[in-house]
């Protein structure tokens, strides 16, 4: 994922001059739409799954039952069972926690580094800006997963490295967005107005520049979590992240690969949850963005 993907979603949410709510009338933010409500409900389902999975799926995600192996979806096993007879639905629900944590931690790492680099470039003068920009250009030459793969090559596969790797590879995108946002806010006329009022630089920074720069990060973060989950599960799928039989979505898909001709449900349902989570994150992110624009 890169800045562009997020920007595609972010639209012109970012503050600054050009995006004053007035100039771009959009759908009113008023009542939430059907899609937003469904997304919110699914989001709630995910959160409950992550916090108290036993509430939604009382079974044991690792409990094997060889007699029930490869059961197709049925009333007893909504999503079917795997090669050892483990219930896929239970595993999907119990896997939510780790998937969400991976997504959130990776996004936090990416955003954190992005904020660090972006604000340094935007605030610390021309030399730093130039240096950081060149550095980001170099990082962008490792498109997509490549940076993550390089990181894994050095530190070896595993959930922790995969998470950090995804976070690292998203950081350049965030950094670039934050730098752009910072520069646009810094040169906006309300910041000049504050200078004219005689506010010291640091107070302008704290009171006007940072809040207006960081407000869109909520949207960025929400959109980013969905993508981070997709990426981390891709690494698991490739055997570089979480390993089976851990109930992690990507790892489950990877395990289902062998049995794709006979037991499609083993791959289908974990993947469906990844997609739905990403869609849910996008919808919620967009909805927040629209609300902020109209606030």
């Amino acid at each position: 994922m890169s800045d562009i993907e997020i920007q595609a979603g972010l639209g012109r949410a970012s503050g600054g001059q050009s995006s004053h709510p007035e100039q771009r009338p959009q759908r009113a933010a008023g009542r939430p739409g059907v899609v937003e409500i469904i997304s919110a409900l699914f989001g709630l389902f995910l959160v409950v799954s992550a916090l108290v999975p036993t509430l939604l799926a009382p079974g044991d995600p690792l409990g094997i039952d060889p007699l029930a192996a490869f059961t197709p979806p049925s009333a007893g096993h909504w999503f079917g069972t795997d090669e050892s007879g483990r219930d896929i639905y239970t595993r999907v629900v119990h896997g939510t926690g780790s998937s969400l944590v991976i997504g959130i931690v990776a996004t936090a790492i990416g955003l954190g580094l992005g904020i660090l680099l972006g604000t340094a470039a935007g605030m610390l003068g021309r030399v730093v800006d130039f240096t950081v920009n060149r550095f980001l250009e170099v990082l962008f030459a490792f498109p997509g997963l490549l940076l993550a793969l390089l990181f894994i090559l050095i530190y070896g596969p595993g959930v922790a490295t995969a998470t950090v790797a995804v976070g690292l590879s998203t950081a350049p995108g965030y950094a670039r967005i934050i730098r752009g946002q910072l520069i646009s806010v810094r040169s906006s006329s309300f910041v000049e107005a504050a200078t004219v009022q005689g506010l010291p630089r640091w107070r302008i920074l704290v009171r006007h520049i940072l809040p207006n720069t960081l407000a869109p990060l909520l949207v960025l973060g929400t959109l980013g979590i969905g993508q981070a989950i997709v990426w981390a599960s891709a690494l698991s799928y490739l055997g570089l992240g979480a390993a089976p039989p851990a109930p992690e979505w990507g790892a489950m898909l990877s395990a289902g690969r062998t049995y794709i001709t006979s037991a499609w449900w083993m791959s289908f349902f974990p993947g469906l949850f990844i997609v739905l989570t990403a869609v849910c994150a996008t919808t919620i992110g967009r909805s927040i963005e629209r609300r902020m624009r109209h606030a």
């Binding site: 595609a8 791959s267 289908f268 993947g271 997609v275 990403a278 869609v279 919808t283």
Partner: peptide, 15 residues
């Protein structure tokens, strides 16, 4: 568009 953009390659390929 939102759904398409959210599709992981490995799952889409499987489907």
């Amino acid at each position: 568009e939102i759904v398409a953009a959210a599709l992981p390659h490995f799952w889409l390929a499987t489907v």
